[in-house]
Amino acid sequence: MLLLLQIKRAEQSIAHRGDAQPPGCSGSDGAPYATGANVNTILLTVQTLNGLQLGLILFLIAAGLTLVFGVMDFINLAHGVQYMLGAYFMVLFYGLTGHFFAGLVLAVLAAILAGLILEIVVFRHLYDRSHLDQVLATFGLILFVNEGVRMIWGSVPISIPTPEILQGAVVLMPGLLYPTYRLAVIGAGIVVAILLYILVTHTRIGMQVRAGAANAPMVSALGVNIRGLFMVIFGIGAMLAGFAGAMAGPIFSVEPGMGDHVLILAFVVIVIGGIGSIRGAFIAALLVGLVDTLGRSFATDFFRLFLDPSAANSVGPAVSSMLIYILMAAVLFFRPAGLFPAPGK
């Protein structure tokens, strides 16, 4: 009974949100938050930026995954682990050097090295195996690395401080404040995406990669050193995942198993985008990031339009958790090979 009453109250106040000027917080810290009619616009803008940022991090992870899958026909479940390793290397090298950017460079280098070691020790022996064997072995690798990281760093989450110059927030427009670091992540994501695009479309190695994604045996038959190409692709994938992990560190906490959730999202992204397609991964990553973020923020409000509040409160979050899966199922229903299927497949 009490609960219902409270929810009703919450309901009413939501309807009036915007014109309420709360007592005791009249911008005492100078936080220029909006009060007024444009609150919903600002909310939407902020959420869109957040969605972009999540999407770009997902893209960094998914890009490597989709290339490795598309060109090498190799399902690498351990890709999430490489993201996690990037974050832990960041913890390590930031701690050692005391400098964010030096730490970042070293962490990415270490992530590449770790990726190449894994390639030589484990993955190389799996290329000619069935997908299921690859899944099984790389899952074993997930168990091993997660637990290994736990033994070394403990299971308590670790934080990476935001670098000095990227602390605080930026006023994007009147009433819209956005954390600087998140903007930096968005910027870095876009830069990497452009670089990757140039690499894939305008260089010789990129041409081989694209050809490999379409027909790997043919590329090999044409005399390209396929082993070398695989190493390069793998290195790029490890670098991007490690970079994503290191950049995500100051936003998310660093803990064992942090790659598992991201891995599933990355698979959703590459499947929606079409396997082997960088462009598909980019668009799908943004799509997933936006749908997930916007869904979480507006699903409950949406259901309140036609359900009673307590029902909306339980249906909303459940549906918003499902949204990306619904999205994926819908995309695959209409386009069974994703939005941008690689040519020749």
Partner: peptide, 15 residues
């Protein structure tokens, strides 16, 4: 969930 930006924006809006 690891990213609370959506929720924080709501809180900022409601003050």
């Amino acid at each position: 969930q690891l990213d609370f930006s959506a929720e924080l924006a709501r809180i900022a809006g409601a003050q």
